[in-house]
């Protein structure tokens, strides 16, 4: 989360501008009270699946609190994310059982493989990695949930295997796409 710990300079792209317009509309529904900070952040994330810098700045202005206050609260809770989720969402369980069984090593493997930290998304938006608390199948620890599939007793070697699988899948999709196009 290191890059959050700095000044925010906003050069919003068209995607973010659309988000911000919608956020402006949402904010009108909320009274300007400090107590609304968390409900507002939750509403924005529900709708847009993450909190962008521009949105947090608008929230700060709306509630007349410091921007840092908004970031301070938002970074405190695991439920908030600051990057759009990837097409493939990787959730590594670091609940008690998984932690004891080496879940942090699995997380590190994913992070190293993708070159991102937990809570981040690869620049091509293909993958995002996050840590989650107990997903409810401790007997299978350590556990990772890839999209909606539970991977139990996951080993570092399996991490590699998962990406090979994605690769194969992508190649198949590309092939099918190409075939469709040529038959049209």
């Amino acid at each position: 989360m290191a890059e959050l710990v700095c000044m925010t300079v906003f050069e919003s792209d068209p995607e973010e501008r659309a988000v911000l317009e919608n956020v402006a509309a949402m904010l009108e529904e909320f009274e300007k009270q400090r107590g609304n900070l968390i409900p507002i952040l939750q509403a924005i994330q529900d709708k847009h699946s993450y909190l962008c810098g521009g949105a947090m700045e608008m929230v700060a202005n709306h509630l007349d609190v410091a921007l840092g206050e908004v970031y301070g609260v938002a970074t405190f809770y695991n439920q908030f994310r600051f990057h759009p989720p990837g097409r493939h969402q990787i959730k590594v369980c670091l609940g008690t059982a998984c932690h004891v069984a080496g879940g942090d090593i699995i997380l590190e493997n994913f992070e190293r493989k993708l070159g991102i930290k937990d809570g981040e998304t690869t620049p091509d938006r293909e993958y995002s990695v996050e840590r989650v608390a107990c997903v409810g199948c401790c007997a299978l620890a350590p556990v990772a949930v890839i999209n909606d599939t539970v991977e139990g007793h996951i080993k570092p070697s399996r991490v590699e295997g998962i990406f090979v699988q994605f690769q194969v899948e992508r190649e198949r999709e590309e092939r099918e796409e190409a075939e469709r196009e040529s038959s049209e």
């Binding site: 000044m7 970031y71 301070g72």
Partner: peptide
Amino acid sequence: ANRGFDTVIAFF
């Protein structure tokens, strides 16, 4: 910013 062992001071 952040929480627990990850707590740091941030500038915004």
